[in-house]
Design a protein around this nucleic acid. Structure first.
Ligand SMILES: [Mn+2]
Ligand SMILES: [Mn+2]
Ligand SMILES: [Zn+2]
Ligand SMILES: [Zn+2]
Lengths: 131, 131
DNA sequence: TATTAAATAGGAATTATTATTATTTAGAAG
DNA sequence: CTTCTAAATAATAATAATTCCTATTTAATA
């Protein structure tokens, strides 16, 4: 854990604004002026792969130091990003109620990630061949 | 409805691969070689605003000519994007079953869009002041 | 202390997207 | 069928976001 990594992680755990990579860089620079953009991008990427931070599917990409399961409400007007507890998400999707604590939901978008059947079969085959 | 628009829309309605803007351009060029990238980007943006096509929250952005409500399964291995019927989505989120017809879901990400309470109040105020 | 591998800084390069502007085109009016 | 006008387009410049490259620094280890 280098100083650079520590500063990035500390910042993301304190900050609740779901900052962009650029914003993370700007903020960490206050404490380590010579830190490079590329370093911040690399560290964010590594943390994401380790599951230490979360990545939001926004443009530009935003980052979240809070990794307990929750989803996000993005205001169409002001652009602010609010946290939604998992429970509210399920209710909203289940019974069409579109009111949540932070506002009124107009639309939502879900991306599921996993292994498609082809790729599952392939990885099973590889495993069997090794045995 | 210009020829350019027609070709873009026809392509998106035929194609089920959820192509990028670049891929739309490459394909439409086959029939209209002088079409400009900027035109494709503008047309995609307009169609999106009119609700004629859907935009996927991917990097890079992808487009979908199918606008009946459905969600997407993105394979972590091969990157292919599969359509998921709404019903399966709800079941998956509701009772933790992570098997869907196209594969096994490892994770998912939901973005909700709407008006936050602040912005709702503001727009109510504006309405009242006009009366 | 010397060796080595990993991480970083700084900047170039690339990718994706948006902005600009001169030209073209699709209709409407005559 | 012409002329006019506004909208749409092509070509390209500019910008934004991200990734790549490489010389240098740092940390860990023998
Ligand atoms: Mn969050
Ligand atoms: Mn689809
Ligand atoms: Zn708002
Ligand atoms: Zn796959």
């Amino acid at each position: 854990m280098t100083n650079q990594k520590k500063l990035v992680l500390d910042f993301l755990r304190r900050d609740t604004s779901h900052p962009t990579a650029e914003a993370v860089w700007e903020n960490v620079k206050k404490q380590l002026p010579q830190i490079s953009r590329a370093t911040v991008y690399r560290i964010l990427d590594n943390f994401q792969k380790e599951g230490v931070i979360r990545v939001l599917e926004t443009k530009p990409t935003r980052f979240d130091g809070q990794i307990e399961p929750h989803q996000h409400f993005i205001c169409n007007n002001c652009g602010k990003i609010f946290d939604l507890k998992e429970e509210k998400v399920c209710r909203c999707l289940r019974d069409g109620s579109n009111m949540v604590s932070v506002g009124k939901v107009h639309s939502f978008n879900v991306n599921f990630y996993g292994l498609c059947q082809n790729c599952q079969t392939e990885s099973d085959d590889n495993l069997n061949n090794k045995l």
